[in-house]
């Protein structure tokens, strides 16, 4: 996958959709394409958060570790962003992320991601929407119980 494909994928991410073409290219150029085998860990819970990732191929599991018990907290699929929450809030990783089968991800510098998102009004709105979405999901989950 070359730099142009990376740029296309970045465009498909709602939070990054509103970037200028120059910024999107810069993000694509500075990102790294990483490969993980099944079961390899992308990042661990409580690690400092320095990168944001996009799944290019395959999928990853998000896991919360509760006193030695692993709780599955969701799966991230192709063309979806993950790891952005901790970067935006500037807190340690909230979950552990592990490859489910072979996975290709695009790794973006957290700092660059933040700079891009904050300079584009459209992206800022997308961030808010994303947050609202997550809160809604949580509330729904709570209702079920």
């Amino acid at each position: 996958m070359d730099f142009k494909d990376a740029s296309k994928i970045i465009k498909s991410i709602p939070m990054l959709e509103g970037l200028s073409s120059a910024n999107r290219k810069l993000l694509a150029f500075t990102s790294q394409l990483l490969t993980y085998e099944d079961g390899e860990v992308v990042f661990h819970i409580d690690e400092p958060a320095t990168y944001v990732y996009i799944v290019v191929e395959g999928q990853v599991d998000q896991i919360v570790v509760n006193s030695n018990d692993e709780v599955h907290a969701g799966t991230v699929t192709k063309n979806k962003l993950f790891g952005e929450m901790a970067v935006i809030q500037n807190v340690p990783r909230l979950v552990t992320v592990r490859a489910k089968g072979p996975v290709n991800v695009l790794r973006i510098e957290g700092e660059m991601f933040l700079q891009m998102v904050t300079t584009s009004p459209k992206s800022a709105l997308a961030v808010m929407q994303e947050m609202a979405q997550k809160i809604t999901t949580l509330v729904d989950k709570h209702k079920d119980k």
Partner: peptide, 20 residues
């Protein structure tokens, strides 16, 4: 062409210049 496009709006002292 690519570099000029990507970097012309980045301030010259920014670390992205040095790194990328």
């Amino acid at each position: 062409d690519i570099m000029v496009d990507m970097f012309q709006d980045i301030p010259p002292e920014h670390e992205f210049f040095r790194r990328f």
